[in-house]
Design a protein around this nucleic acid. Structure first.
Lengths: 167, 167
DNA sequence: AGTTTATGTCAGCCTTGTTGACATTCCAAG
DNA sequence: CTTGGAATGTCAACAAGGCTGACATAAACT
């Protein structure tokens, strides 16, 4: 089904065949492994996991963010995040400051040590992304980001857009 | 560092700034969540997880594949895969046939029930991919796949290429 | 006959997701 | 002002699905 149609306007829809879609799906699967491979190696050495990386990344992106905001970005339960945050705080990578306006809130910051790990992780991950971008070229990069953005759920796209504004 | 250089040939390297790379990284993170969201919901209803989906997908792609081949594609340990395969076989979604040439090997096939679940999962996942492809357009899709392929590790790219040939 | 290869299984550990129960803090309605 | 609900964060316990290591079996290769 859905093989090589042509739309009402006459534009080629070859890229929407089930076969093309399946290629996109498998590309996404294999590429995500490459995407996480380098940070995973670094994290494993230090006894951390991907969850720690995600927390560190977004704390670095928005220093002083609250636990609740982080929860919403990461899309996990607060209990799950809390476990990760606790080890990062114990290990001195993250600092948690009680909110001045609202004392229920905890504002999160990377310490110097935390920033060092963040730099190590993001340098490795950027190197991989840079290689892929360079190899594929600027046109391809633009398409890459368009498709990814269209693949997000609405709330994720909201978070994504907000981060793009800040950065 | 790496802000808006121009290469020796004069071509713009704006898309290789740390900022652009970071956007690519975050897009990849949020998009992968969308990518898995629909299958995850279906799987959760039936008491399966992503690991089962991956096994089902690649058995469907290459019926009769051996356990070892699947291990290499999925990049997990045999113990991990075995646990998943065992439940799929017990539940009658996958059939394991002893090899005729080499009786050590087990060749894996989806049963009718297995094919039904595969269809349900891949239909949902294709719908998401189709929406993203349609929204972004054929040029973007081409770029998307170029960047993803360039992001893979070599052995993943090998598996990917082999699957593309078959398909 | 002995070695290697492919597979399966058991036990046990870790990360990271989940839910449930609970403490603290804030705010607003009475 | 007090009290009750909402928001925020912590602790405990459990499950899925990674991992390693040890071991059994059977077939193939030398």
């Amino acid at each position: 089904m859905a093989e090589g149609q042509t739309g009402p306007g006459g534009e080629s829809l070859l890229f929407l065949t089930d076969d093309q879609l399946r290629k996109g799906i498998e590309a996404m699967f294999f590429a995500y492994r490459g995407f996480t491979a380098d940070p995973d190696r670094i994290l494993a050495e230090k006894g951390y996991g991907r969850a720690h990386h995600r927390a560190i990344h977004f704390i670095n992106r928005a220093p002083g963010t609250t636990v609740n905001n982080l929860l919403s970005i990461l899309g996990v339960t607060k209990q799950s995040l809390n476990r990760v945050l606790r080890t990062l705080i114990e290990d001195g990578l993250v600092e948690s400051r009680v909110g001045s306006r609202d004392k229920r809130e905890r504002h999160l910051y990377l310490t110097e040590t935390g920033e060092a790990l963040e730099a190590e992780l993001s340098t490795a991950q950027r190197a991989r992304m840079r290689g892929a971008f360079r190899q594929a070229g600027p046109e391809a990069v633009s398409g890459f980001r368009q498709v990814l953005e269209a693949m997000m759920d609405n709330d994720m796209r909201r978070h994504y857009a907000r981060l793009m504004d800040n950065g």
